[in-house]
Design a protein around this nucleic acid. Structure first.
Lengths: 202, 202
DNA sequence: ATGTTTGTACAGTTTTAACTTTACGTACGA
DNA sequence: TCGTACGTAAAGTTAAAACTGTACAAACAT
């Protein structure tokens, strides 16, 4: 499945061992994205494989059922970490990694966080409205007013935070985050005038 | 446990319902932080409670075992989302929320992501060194060189990304992220004319 | 000291998630 | 028209985690 066939066993073993360490490390990292270890492993393997792979290949290499590969691949697709691509000769589906990890990171927030945050803001908004309505309704009771205002303040604080978070997410979606925190670290000595805006694809 | 005792049932029910919606929403959101729904709920309750609470109170309110409260509280403490505080009269431990959600967000990355990223960089570095060593060792085989270089490029790309991620995490830890993406949204009138080129003094 | 209270380790149970096997719908080639 | 290959839904199984009850160590009061 890969191009390690023409070398001595010692050579290919070394390469393999190296790849496995990296794949392992990547896979372990993936739980940050809410992805299970084995799917992380799956991604790691695809990352090192030159060219797209099929479910059957994955199944054989991972030593797992084809069904698992199917669901795993779908999970990674949902997060836009891999793409389905078209191969001319075959009827099988082909998948390959989206190697731009900066993009992956942005997509992750765009997909996972944005949805959750927006849902939350919705709920909070509903509560804010109701709370303000109650304040009008029970104007005579100062104690109640105090409680209502305390609750309102808490929700308002949360809302402010969510708004900020949304701006952060937006900065990732638009790529503005890479202006604020550039991909190439600023040289410690010289202040370069023009920054190359994007790195070439691999 | 809370200050809802002096009101009519209708009033306190409305308040309660409102709080529950928010608490629910917060709890649901928490799985972004790798926290289980019930612990998220726990946090939500604490967020609305004025003043610190004890394990027994939590246990009673949540309808869960005290042991669960103990572990839940520890999880939240590890993420610095709540603090243990000292109450003068009592022997019980008291806990209260850290209400600064911006800080919570930063801490989350500092705690969870930094560790994982640094671990990964370690592994990748090891592989890079070994790979370069192999390149010297097998200079005679051009095919092997090609494979080694392909692997090296992939790992190097990953490394670049991790370095960037570390800078992002650092920006959160130092609070610089709040200069780049301010808590108060920029006034809509002045659409950023130019990016401030000087980096913050800090 | 002795007795109580409080938090948590530990072992056991239940619930949930991961994974596999089987089976089926769809698309393609003859 | 079959028949075959492919991907995935559904049901079943296994592994993991969340949660509980018991028991015990530490801290305090008397």
């Amino acid at each position: 499945m890969n191009d390690l066939s023409g070398f001595t066993t010692e050579q290919s073993q070394k390469i393999q061992k190296n790849r496995e360490r990296v794949i392992d490390s990547i896979g372990k990292n993936m739980d940050l994205y809410g992805i299970t270890l084995s799917i992380g492993h799956l991604y790691g393997y695809m990352y090192f494989n030159n060219g797209p792979v099929t479910l059957d290949e994955l199944s054989k290499t991972m030593g797992m059922s084809k069904t698992s590969m199917s669901t795993g691949v779908r999970t990674l697709m949902d997060l836009k970490m891999i793409d389905k691509v078209w191969g001319k000769g075959t009827r099988k589906d082909l998948y390959e990694v989206e190697p731009d990890w900066y993009q992956n990171f942005s997509d992750f927030f765009s997909i996972k966080w944005r949805k959750a945050v927006e849902g939350n803001m919705n709920a909070l908004n509903k509560s804010l409205v109701e709370l303000r309505h109650m304040k009008k309704e029970y104007e005579e009771s100062p104690e109640l007013q105090a409680v209502l205002e305390a609750d309102e303040a808490k929700i308002a604080h949360a809302m402010d935070y969510y708004k900020w978070l949304l701006r952060l997410i937006e900065a990732m979606e638009t790529g503005k985050i890479f202006e604020l925190i550039p991909k190439e670290p600023r040289e410690p000595a010289s202040q370069e005038a023009g920054r190359p805006e994007h790195d070439g694809k691999e």
